[in-house]
Amino acid sequence: MPKFKLDRIDCSILALLQKDGRMTNYELADRVGLSPSPCLRRVKALEDAGVIRTYVALVDPDAVNLPVNVFVNVTLERQVEDRLDVFEATVRQWPEVLECYLMTGEADYLLRVVVPDLSSYERFLKQYLTRVPGVASIKSSFALKQVRYQTALPLGQLGV
């Protein structure tokens, strides 16, 4: 996918929407110094280009009883394409896995799993993760405290 050419106004629009995706077009236009119609056209262009993928609500995990974050390093027996594909397709089906990355280094994958408690993670581990064909090892680390959680990308580093 070709890169979308962002200018200063596009970056401002993105920065504001990352902080408040429910901001009205009128407020957004005022904050970036445009009238509403050109602002809406820019937002639509950013959406059409896939720069803005979607709009979401960030839910407090404690409020919905999902306070436990587990970071899981998974190593496969063999790093061959069909094993990677099977693992990735399987992981995509589990709602407890919020993030999954193919990694360099010691482990093949890093997962972030969210569960209500330790026994729920034990169930997840036994009923799902250990049953994936080709998994050689699983190492789990439990987050004690969330020091920083950021969803907004650092657009100020783009230099426009």
Rank of each mutant, 00 (worst) to 15 (best):
T75Y: 05
V147H: 03
R78G: 08
E47N: 05
R31W: 00
I52S: 06
V86H: 09
S141K: 12
P95K: 10
A152N: 02
L84C: 04
R78Y: 07
L144Y: 09
V97F: 05
E81A: 10
L111F: 09
A57M: 06
D108S: 03
M103S: 13
V51C: 07
V115C: 10
L125F: 13
N69L: 12
D10F: 13
V132G: 04
L155E: 02
N73D: 10
C11I: 15
M23H: 04
F124N: 11
V80S: 02
M1F: 10
R41G: 09
D108E: 04
V59D: 01
E106K: 13
P2W: 06
L28G: 01
K5Q: 13
I13K: 07
E106G: 11
R123D: 15
L111A: 06
F124M: 09
R112P: 04
Y101A: 11
S120E: 09
L98Y: 08
K5T: 12
V135Y: 07
I52C: 11
P133A: 08
C39E: 04
Y101V: 10
A49C: 06
E122N: 12
L129Y: 07
E77Y: 12
R41E: 12
L34D: 03
Y55C: 04
G134C: 11
Q157P: 02
K44P: 00
W94T: 01
A89S: 07
R148T: 05
A143D: 01
G134H: 12
T130Q: 14
F124V: 11
P2K: 09
D60Q: 06
N69F: 14
R22L: 05
V59N: 02
D30P: 05
D117G: 02
A136R: 14
V86I: 10
V114R: 15
S35H: 08
E99N: 13
Q93H: 07
K3D: 07
V135C: 12
N73V: 01
N73C: 10
G156Q: 10
T24G: 14
W94L: 15
A45R: 14
K44D: 03
P154Y: 03
K19Q: 12
D62G: 13
P154E: 13
V132P: 01
Q127R: 15
E81G: 06
A63K: 10
A49I: 10
V147N: 03
Q157G: 06
A45D: 03
